[in-house]
Design a binder for these strands. Structure first.
Lengths: 194, 194
DNA sequence: CCAATTATTGACCAATTGATCAATAATAAT
DNA sequence: ATTATTATTGATCAATTGGTCAATAATTGG
């Protein structure tokens, strides 16, 4: 190797992710990005190739951080149902200081992009389905722990949970009233039990 | 009056709305709009002043058409609960041929725009709250008709319905599976009854 | 028919966009 | 130290952006 990059690639992707998450794909210019990560166009394009490619990296990182967050909740909670609850409560209400938007970056992306960016669109869909699968697995664990009825379908209930997360976060962005959201979340969980 | 415009203003706004609804605010260029409505820049800016102003008109029209759709459902259904159900079923599943996106234009807008366009953002929020108020009124009617428990709060349940609509439409865009959505919608309504 | 008013047209503008590239600088291996 | 390789820099590009404007055309009232 002849010369080594001065910047930390992961850090750059993280900063890009935060910008994309806040402003969306279209409203984030490559200049914005270059300023945020302190790279000149040459290094920038040598490292990532295109705006789309960097966005793709940002999506991957977002999903992986979301996954990590769920793992943290698993460490702090001993019941699977408790993990789901803590996870949902966390992403919907609790992370104002780390999140640049009330809404999920993946949801913002499928809301914003069209078939013109079908690769990024499909990637977002796939990552959302991953989360849904993780929730389904947690529900299976909850069934074994006796906290969730064995007569219910885990995959179906996971879809239900995804609908609730998407709905609640969007509603949160619209109403900005955590109190209301919290009570809706409570009701949702009591609906789940029977 | 000296000369009269050749175009139909309402028709122009409608076409602009369809484009904005499909592609979002940022991805729709003023050129796209001018082509779609067949107006040269001069006429275009004489008529609307700015891209933001036309988008604002489009939002108003969207909300008013949504309102009209709810009125149609009211004409076709004699129970208030039936109206709510038909309305939700319609916007979530049934209007593939008229809607350029699975998602609500107002939701797409609050998802896409930031404080940089605070006027449009606030307008979208306000229009969504109007729909919520209409739903609350229908629930009150449903209470009088004995189809919805008088022990429940109508405004609270209206929030709940908004969460469901937002969630289901977003999920629809992600999964593209009407069957699943329909069953989730059914469950939601049975949850409502008790 | 004329004049006053208004609508339409298309050339044009400055700014921003995503992206390229030759020149330069830095490093590691020999 | 020299060389080969790689990273960085900043000027630059063509295309697109939202928007302006003077010239022209069309219409209506007098």
């Amino acid at each position: 190797m002849a010369n080594v990059a001065k910047y930390d690639r992961d850090e750059v992707i993280h900063k890009a992710m935060m910008l994309f998450w806040e402003k969306g794909f279209n409203a984030t210019s490559t200049r914005d990005l270059q300023d945020a990560v302190n790279l000149r166009p040459g290094s920038f394009y040598a490292a990532f190739g295109s705006k789309e490619a960097l966005f793709s990296e940002a999506l991957k990182l977002y999903a992986s951080e979301s996954h990590d967050y769920l793992l943290n909740m698993s460490a702090e909670n001993d019941s699977a149902m408790g993990v789901i609850r803590a996870f949902m409560q966390g992403i919907i209400l609790g992370r104002k200081k780390v999140a640049p938007s009330e809404m999920c970056m993946l949801v913002k992306t499928i809301a914003e992009l069209t078939d013109e960016h079908s690769v990024l669109l499909e990637q977002s869909r796939e990552l959302l389905k991953n989360t849904e699968r993780q929730l389904a697995q947690l529900l299976e664990k909850a069934q074994q722990e006796g906290e969730f009825s064995k007569h219910k379908s885990c995959s179906h209930t996971a879809s239900y949970l995804m609908v609730q997360i998407m709905g609640l976060r969007t509603y949160m962005r619209n109403s900005q009233s955590p109190k209301l959201i919290e009570s809706l979340l409570d009701e949702m969980f009591s609906n789940l039990q029977h």
